[in-house]
Simulated assay, not measured.
Amino acid sequence: MHTKPFSLLCVWLLVLGKEFVSGTFPKAQNVSWYSLNFKTLLTWGPKPVNYSYTVEFSKQNENRERNPLCIQTSDTECDLTADLKELKGRYNADVLSEPVRGLNPPDLIEPPHTTSAWFIPYQDTIIGSPEFKITVNEDQRKITLYVKDTPTAVLNEQKQRMTIRDIFKDDLQYKVIYRKAKSSGKKEKFSASSEIELTDLDRGESYCFNVQAYIPSRPIDKQLGELSQVQCSPKRDKSIFEEYSLAVIAGAILSIIVIISVVIAVIVLCYKRQQRAKSKAKERVPLRHV
């Protein structure tokens, strides 16, 4: 009665057994590293069907190791953040195609595997976009940016998260890109400090800023981190003395005085003419006899 399901199970086991004995499991494809702020994942594909993946990794010239969470797994990524302890070390990894958990191949059979490129956390991790605050000096002649050093996935001995400043130290700089709020012309400034002062600005103008980490010791294409969101300083209304030169203001005042003087002169002239007209009218009236 149950011979058909049993037969199908036997056929499936035979096929699976032939696969892992002959080493014909599909190899992992597109094995690559993805690392942001030192949180480092090894990724690959495709999703396995009737087989699993195991990840082996090593620092250059050292023995290979395995992460317990990435042995005979159906996942297509492995978090190796805590395993890459030497941040300036050079690592690579193999993704092995193996039977599903519980079905072990013979010891002599080497499973199909795909090797990753080399990866150095210190120079290859992407540095995320920083956060920063803007303060404008009271006299409007200086703007200061206070950049928050981005936290990373690396823990120190006290199990606290280290920042990129803790890791890169003097090798970390910041690049600032800025412009007037209503202009497309841009300027750049590099700073070794997280507190960045800008003094070549027009007083009272609103300026817009982008900030990104800059690590000059890295390869050129990896020196810059991700660009921050744009932030703009508030625009202050200028006083009349800031908006116009003294010559323009003096000219305007003089023009107003001239206009007022002309108006007064015209009023006085009109008044005198009116008085003369009244006097002449009185002179023409004959005297009455008593």
Score class of each variant (00 low, 15 high):
S279K: 10
V268A: 13
I215R: 04
S206H: 06
N67G: 01
F168S: 05
P219F: 09
Y207H: 10
S184K: 13
D237Q: 14
K18I: 15
T163W: 01
V15D: 07
V268C: 09
D75V: 08
V15P: 06
N37C: 07
T43A: 11
Q72A: 13
D149K: 01
S22Q: 15
F6K: 14
L80H: 06
P151F: 01
S279A: 11
W12Y: 12
I126G: 01
Q274A: 11
T73R: 08
K27Q: 12
T135F: 03
E226R: 14
G128L: 04
I109N: 04
Y34A: 12
K238G: 12
K186S: 12
L14D: 11
L198S: 02
K47T: 13
V285W: 01
Y244I: 10
I253S: 07
K27Y: 09
V230S: 02
R161S: 13
I220G: 04
T163A: 04
Q229T: 14
L8D: 11
R165E: 03
I215C: 04
K159E: 14
R288I: 14
I134P: 00
G102E: 03
K47D: 11
L103M: 12
G89Y: 01
I257K: 06
N104I: 11
E243K: 15
P106S: 03
T3W: 14
E157W: 09
N30Q: 13
L201Q: 02
L227K: 11
C78K: 00
E226A: 07
I120Y: 02
K182A: 15
K278M: 07
I164P: 00
F241G: 10
V258Y: 02
N104F: 09
Q160C: 08
R141K: 12
N30G: 10
A117S: 15
V258W: 04
F132C: 03
K148Q: 02
P5C: 08
Q223G: 04
S35M: 00
N37I: 05
R236L: 13
Y244C: 00
W118F: 13
L8R: 08
K169C: 06
Q275C: 03
P68N: 06
L41G: 05
V266R: 09
H289W: 07
S194M: 00
S193I: 02
D107G: 14
A265F: 10
V147P: 00
Q72M: 00
F209H: 03
N92S: 06
L287T: 07
G185Y: 13
G45S: 11
Y53M: 04
S261F: 10
Q212W: 05
L36H: 08
G89I: 02
L14I: 06
